Simulated assay, not measured.
Amino acid sequence: MNLTVRQLRYVCEVARLGSVLAASKSLYISQSSILAAITLAEAEMGARIFDRRPARGVSITPAGQRFVAAARVMLAAETEFNRSIGDLSGRVPKVLRIGCFEPFGALFMPEMLRGYLDSVGDVEIDLVEADQVQLQERLVAGQIDLAILYDIGPIGIDSVTRICKVPAHAVLNADDPLAVRDGIWLAELAERPLVLLDLPHTATYLLTLFDVLAKRPEVRFRTRSYETVRSAVASGFGMAILNMRPIGRATADGDEIVRKPIFDELPPPTLIVADMYGSAKPLFVRVFIEIFHRFFDTVGPSGFSVTTPEREPLLLVARKG
Rank of each mutant, 00 (worst) to 15 (best):
L3E: 11
R9S: 13
E13I: 10
A15I: 15
R16L: 09
S19I: 14
A23H: 11
S24P: 04
L27K: 03
L27P: 05
Y28A: 06
S30E: 10
S33W: 08
L35F: 03
A37I: 14
I38V: 15
E44S: 09
G46S: 11
P54M: 07
T61H: 07
R66K: 14
F67M: 01
A69T: 15
A71L: 11
R72I: 12
E78H: 14
E80L: 12
F81N: 11
D87S: 11
P93E: 08
K94S: 12
V95L: 00
L96T: 00
I98S: 01
C100L: 00
C100K: 01
C100S: 04
P103L: 00
P103W: 00
F104S: 02
F108G: 01
F108S: 02
M109E: 00
P110I: 02
R114N: 07
R114Q: 08
R114S: 08
S119K: 04
D122N: 03
V140R: 15
Q143D: 04
L146P: 03
G153Q: 07
D158A: 15
R162S: 07
I163S: 15
K165R: 14
V171K: 03
L172E: 09
P177L: 01
D182I: 07
V195C: 10
L197S: 08
H201F: 15
T202L: 13
T204L: 04
T208L: 07
L213M: 01
T223R: 04
S225F: 12
E227S: 02
A232G: 10
M239C: 04
I257F: 02
V258H: 07
L266A: 07
Y277E: 12
P282Y: 10
F284C: 01
V285D: 01
I289Q: 00
I291M: 05
I291N: 07
H293S: 13
H293T: 09
F295S: 04
P301C: 01
P301G: 00
T308M: 04
P309K: 06
P309H: 05
E310T: 07
R311K: 14
R311P: 10
R311A: 10
P313R: 03
G321H: 01
